[in-house]
Design a protein around this nucleic acid. Structure first.
Length: 651
DNA sequence: TTTAGGG
DNA sequence: CCCTAAA
């Protein structure tokens, strides 16, 4: 039978697959990349919101050993990393992303603990503190705070995606600098203390909105916080007795609020007067995250519209049965997949209280709450993606800073500038060379970078004023300078969408920065931030890990298959059959690196299609009919083979 | 990582 | 070619 087929098809014969498909598939592994990506988004969005546009990516931080073993990291970074590792015990490591997320989502799914957002091996400590309450939330006294964050982290789950709903005055309107971010990868110097002094924080940034993306519903519900009249969100009358609130359904919960949407008991628990917020917040245990008064949520959506079944209520530590079906929690409440917004001030306050700082929690936070309170997000740390930086020793400090800034900026989205730390001191003189500063290979462990907000008051970014660059610069032109002003983002009407686009545009085309500037500048003013400095230095700054989004955007150039390629493909498939594209690739296209097995598979697919349609309908370089016939024959044959089990194969 | 399919 | 679910 087999023999007949061979003759019939006119080729050498078909090679039976070495083993049943099922067996071969054993080597496959599961991939969870999708989920991971979602999480990344989450973290990213959250951070972006807080900082104006922080971008975090990656998950699953490498283990310590991973970091250490990372191949050829920049000496500087390597040292910084090691240093950090050494100090890990001392400095609680908090993944801000999760911290934030937990704040926002307040989940307690079991697996959260494992999840960490890792942006790279260049681990830096970043602290975002509530700008409004410097004193109340002493950033430097972070132990409890950190612990709290960790706690939150543990309880957080990845249910929701967060997006920036809108940036308020600070980030957008006033052009003020967004959240304060301080990074200290120099372990020896707790960054928060140095760079992130609370005092340096911008005033309270209200209106920074976080949106939990609701995949189930359209996202149009997000409105500008100020667009709607505010109704104070009332705290529960008794913190200690959440239950009472339950009994006491909130009669005045504004529809506009999240509470409306997420009719969790929690929300309902807060019908009291604003004053009571003090109590509410004062309580170290119960800290609803969303007590802000500026939810952007539109009330147009009635609760019944909300698929309650899909709601999941997560709570932190303790929960009270919620008659409504939800649960009250002492932590943050999260509504998976639901979009909602919150201003950062509120969460910040929460975190503050969570930190366990009595004074803060009871007094100042309370005050905070009573005011036009808004959430402030506090990020204790985050990891900056690994960056590979090469810079000549003759380069100036300014150059180095700019280089790092550029690298980081591209990752974080701008709005930050990099500070340089050396031996515990900030190096402010951008004109010194590294040598002059004393930075050399053997002292790299004393070098650290800090991420600092480019506050309006702060000196212009290095790239704006440097004149010492040893390398040809293109950014000397004044033009970029004026625009550099961080601006966080031109916040769009539709923050959600914009964030996405922003991210993509800012990060793509990594390979050729110069080109990027061209198209980016035109449409995305934000690109101006990154581009100028990019051009400034011919230094190699390569984010080890490019943003997936950015890269994914690059579509491969189209490379039509030549007839000879088609022939090779047909031949291979005749021999190996369909479904073994890797083998086909190896056999016939092993040295055609641009042809992946997926490409071959796709090509075969189109070949089959082409063979079936009339010649008039075919496009492109005509494929000899002879080849197309072979395609059909082979396709039919292998299709039959697949249907037919072992029997034939064994012959 | 590969396969298989839809887009 | 891309994107992804599955395996």
């Amino acid at each position: 039978m087999v023999l007949q087929k061979r003759l019939y098809y006119g080729f050498d014969g078909y090679q039976v697959p070495p083993m049943p498909r099922a067996t071969r598939s054993a080597r496959r592994r599961c991939s969870f990349s999708k989920k991971v990506d979602n999480n990344q988004m989450c973290a990213f969005d959250l951070l972006a919101t807080v900082a104006g546009k922080l971008l975090l990516e990656e998950e699953s931080p490498p283990t310590s050993s991973d970091r250490v073993n990372e191949k050829e990291p920049s000496p500087i970074l390597e040292d910084a990393i090691k240093k950090e590792q050494q100090d890990e015990d001392k400095i609680s490591k908090v993944e801000p992303c999760w911290g934030l997320e937990s704040m926002i989502t307040s989940n307690c799914s079991e697996n959260v603990a494992k999840r960490k957002i890792q942006v790279g091996s260049f681990a830096s400590k970043v602290e975002l503190a509530s700008s409004g309450y410097p004193e109340s939330c002493d950033c430097t006294d972070g132990d409890k705070y950190k612990k709290q964050l960790i706690e939150l982290q543990k309880n957080a789950s990845n249910i929701a995606k967060a997006d920036i709903c809108s940036f308020d005055d600070i980030t957008v309107r006033d052009r003020k600098h967004p959240a304060l971010v301080s990074v200290d990868n120099c372990v020896t110097l707790p960054l928060c203390t140095d760079h992130f002094s609370c005092g340096s924080f911008p005033a309270i940034r209200e209106d920074v909105k976080l949106v939990i993306r609701d995949d189930d519903e359209n996202s149009s519900g997000c409105t500008h916080p100020r667009s709607t009249p505010e109704k104070p969100f009332r705290p529960p009358s008794s913190v200690d007795n959440p239950q009472s609130s339950v009994d006491n359904p909130p009669s005045c919960v504004d529809n506009r609020r999240i509470g409306n949407r997420f009719a969790s008991k929690y929300w309902k628990v807060n019908p009291k007067l604003k004053r009571e917020e003090e109590h509410f917040n004062a309580d170290s245990e119960v800290k609803p995250v969303y007590h802000h008064r500026k939810f952007c949520y539109e009330h147009h959506r009635s609760q019944r519209d909300y698929p309650i079944k899909k709601r999941k209520f997560y709570y932190d530590r303790s929960s009270v049965p919620n008659p409504d079906r939800g649960m009250s929690c002492k932590g943050i409440t999260s509504f998976p997949r639901k979009k909602f917004t919150c201003d950062t001030s509120g969460s910040s306050a929460t975190m503050c209280g969570a930190s366990g700082k009595p004074a803060c929690a009871a007094g100042q936070c309370a005050a905070f709450q009573s005011g036009d309170s808004h959430v402030k997000l506090s990020i204790k740390s985050f990891n900056v993606p690994e960056l590979l930086i090469e810079i000549p020793e003759s380069a100036t400090v300014g150059s180095l800073k700019r280089t790092v800034t550029e690298a980081v900026t591209r990752i974080l989205g701008g709005g930050l500038h990099v500070g340089l730390l050396f031996q515990g001191k900030k190096i402010r003189d951008d004109n010194k060379t590294l040598l002059q500063t004393g930075i050399s290979d053997n002292k790299l462990d004393a070098v650290g970078f800090s991420l600092e907000p480019s506050s309006s008051g702060s000196p212009a970014p290095a790239c704006m004023r440097h004149k010492d660059s040893p390398l040809p610069l293109t950014c000397e032109s004044p033009q970029p300078l004026k625009r550099y002003r961080p601006t966080p983002i031109a916040v769009p009407d539709h923050p959600l969408l914009n964030l996405g686009s922003f991210v993509e545009s800012d990060h793509d085309s990594a390979p050729s920065p110069p080109n990027m500037s061209i198209d980016k500048n035109l449409t995305d003013s934000r690109a101006l931030v990154a581009v100028p400095s990019m051009n400034v230095e011919a230094l190699a700054v390569v984010p080890a890990r490019k943003s997936k989004r950015s890269e994914a955007v690059q579509r491969r150039i189209r490379r039509p298959f030549s007839v000879s390629e088609v022939e090779a493909l047909v031949q291979a498939v005749e021999k190996l059959g369909t479904g073994r594209w890797r083998d086909v690739k190896l056999r016939a296209f092993d040295n055609a690196k641009h042809r992946t097995y997926v490409d071959l598979k796709d090509k075969w697919k189109t070949l089959v299609h082409t063979a079936r349609i009339s010649p008039q309908q075919r496009r492109g370089e005509p494929v000899p009919q002879e080849l197309l016939d072979r395609v059909l024959n082979a396709h039919a044959y292998w299709a039959k083979q697949q249907a037919k089990p072992e029997t034939l194969r064994l012959l």
